[in-house]
Design a protein around this nucleic acid. Structure first.
Lengths: 247, 247
DNA sequence: CGTGACTTTGAGATATATCAATCTGAGTGG
DNA sequence: CCACTCAGATTGATATATCTCAAAGTCACG
C-alpha cells in the first residue's frame, strides 16, 4: 500500500524506487487511530513527533475566548503537521479530526535522517511546506475579499484538487467529510448562510453535495464562478514536465 | 549600526558576538533602495536573493482579476522575504513597499553558508519562519471571526509589538507608515469603515493615530478590547530565560 | 497657493448574521 | 422491523454590521 505522502511529494519531483520505499516504510512504523471529532493536539502541547495523515481528514483550528471558532486549515491524507512548529515552544492552536483518522507518527529524527540521506525528499518536503504556506495566504485572500459564494466555491475547488493530488478523487468527485458548520467556521460565515449559498451553487448546477460526497460536474465553471486560480497550489509543475518526458 | 535582523533573532536566542558580526556584515554587502508605493517583486517573478528590510515597511499582497486587493502580510525592518519560497517555481503574489524602503540583498548561498557555520543562526531563522506562519494563521482568525473594531485593534497591537521587537518603538508608540486604504485591504474592510472604526477607537482613548504615527496609551486596554493574545508572536520566550539567568 | 493624496462625513443599500422552528435521515434499542 | 433519538440540514423572519457612492474637508508638498 502506497503512502499518500509519496503520492503528494510525487507531484513535485519524481522519487526513486528507493526513496519511495523508504517513505512507505517510515509511514508504517507507528500507526495511531483517532476517532471522529476528537482533538489530536491541543493548544499548549509540545510536539514530539510529526504526524502524517494516512486516512481521514483533520483541521487546524483556533478558538477565541468567547467560543468563536476559526478553522485555519484542513488536512487531507498525505498532509502532515508540522515540521516547522518544532522551532516553537508550544502549539498556539489545536488540531482536531473531522472523521476517523489514521495517523503515522514519524519520529522527528527518523524523518530528518531520511531527508539528509535523500536530498530529493528534503527538497520535496520543503516544497510541501511552501505550498502549505501559500494555501494559508490564499485563505487570507478568500476570507478577506471574496463573497460568500466565491469563498465556498473556492474552498471546494481547492479541496477537490488536493484530494485528486493524492489519488483520492475520481474525475469529478471526492469525499468531503465535513459538516456545514465546519465549512462555516473555515470560511468565516454563519452555518445558515453556508446552507443558503450551498443551495445556490446546487441550483446553478455547479456542485452536487450529498452524504459527505462532493461532485463538481464542471470544474472550470465552478472555478470561474469562484475566481479560483490553481496556481497557488503549485501542483504538477515538475510532475507535468516529467510526465511529458515519459510519453 | 546593528541590523534589525540581529535584533529580531535575538528575541529567540542569544547570539554570540561572532554571530552578530557575521549577520551585520552580510546585511551590508548589497544594499538597494526602493521608493514608496513601488513593487519589489511581482507575481510570476523568480527569486534569486533573500531580501532583508533594513528600513521602511513593505507588504505582501495579491490582487483578484477584478481589482480587489488583499494585503496578506506586512513586513517591518528585520523581516525578510522569503527563504522558503525558493522551493516554488515562481512567486504567486507580489511584494510592494509602503514607504521608502532600504533592502539588503542576501545571496541565497551566503545565508545558507552562514546558517551552516552557525547552528544558532539556522535555528533562529527557522524560528522566524515558524512565527511568520503563525502570524498568517492569526490573520485568518482575525478576518474570519473578529469584528471590525477587534480586527483593527488586533492588527495595531501586533504591529506595535513587532516594531518593539526590533527596537523601533518607544514605550507606547511607533511609526505606522500605512494609509487607511492599506489597513482596509489588510483587514478585508472598506476604507470608509476603517475610518469610522478608527474614530471609535480614538473616542474610547484606545489609540492616537496622526501623521503616520501610532500611540497606544494603554496596551492592555487595547489588547483586551481586541481579544489580542500575544502568544502567537512567540516573542521573548527563550530571550526571557536568558535574561533571567543574567541577573 | 494650487494640486493631489488622503481622510472624513452623510445617506442609503445589501450581504450576512441571529434566533427559533421545523425537517430529514442515519443509527439504536426494543 | 418499528419507534426513538440526535446530529445535521433547512426554512422563515428580522436585525445589523459593513459596503457603496458621492461629496466635502484636510494637509503636505512643490
Amino acid at each position: 500500500m502506497e503512502s499518500p505522502l509519496v503520492r503528494k511529494l510525487g507531484c513535485f519531483t519524481r522519487l526513486s524506487a528507493e526513496e519511495t520505499k523508504a517513505l512507505n516504510e517510515i509511514s508504517r512504523v507507528k500507526i495511531r487511530r483517532v476517532g471522529a471529532r476528537e482533538d489530536i493536539i491541543r493548544e499548549g502541547d509540545t510536539l514530539e513527533n510529526i504526524n502524517l495523515i494516512l486516512e481521514g481528514w483533520a483541521c487546524r483550528y483556533k478558538q477565541l475566548e468567547d467560543g468563536r471558532r476559526q478553522i485555519i486549515a484542513f488536512f487531507v491524507p498525505g498532509d502532515h503537521f508540522d515540521s516547522h512548529v518544532f522551532s516553537l515552544r508550544e502549539m498556539d492552536h489545536s488540531i482536531g479530526t473531522m472523521n476517523a483518522v489514521t495517523l503515522a507518527e514519524l519520529g522527528r529524527e527518523g524523518l530528518l535522517a531520511l531527508a539528509e540521506r535523500h536530498p530529493r525528499i528534503a527538497q520535496s518536503l520543503s516544497w510541501e511546506i511552501a505550498v502549505r504556506f501559500s494555501i494559508q495566504r490564499e485563505w487570507t485572500v478568500s476570507i478577506g475579499q471574496r463573497t460568500a459564494a466565491e469563498r465556498l466555491g473556492h474552498l471546494l475547488c481547492e479541496l477537490f484538487l488536493r484530494m485528486q493530488a493524492v489519488g483520492l478523487a475520481d474525475a469529478t468527485s471526492c469525499d468531503l467529510p465535513v459538516t456545514q458548520v465546519d465549512l462555516a467556521d473555515a470560511l468565516g460565515l454563519s452555518n445558515v448562510h453556508v446552507n443558503r449559498v450551498l443551495q445556490e451553487l446546487r441550483a446553478n448546477g455547479l456542485i452536487v453535495l450529498r452524504g459527505r460526497h462532493l461532485t463538481i460536474p464542471d470544474f472550470q465553471a465552478l472555478a470561474a464562478n469562484s475566481l479560483f486560480n490553481p496556481h497557488y497550489l503549485h501542483l504538477g509543475h515538475e510532475g507535468r514536465h516529467l510526465d511529458a518526458a515519459d510519453e
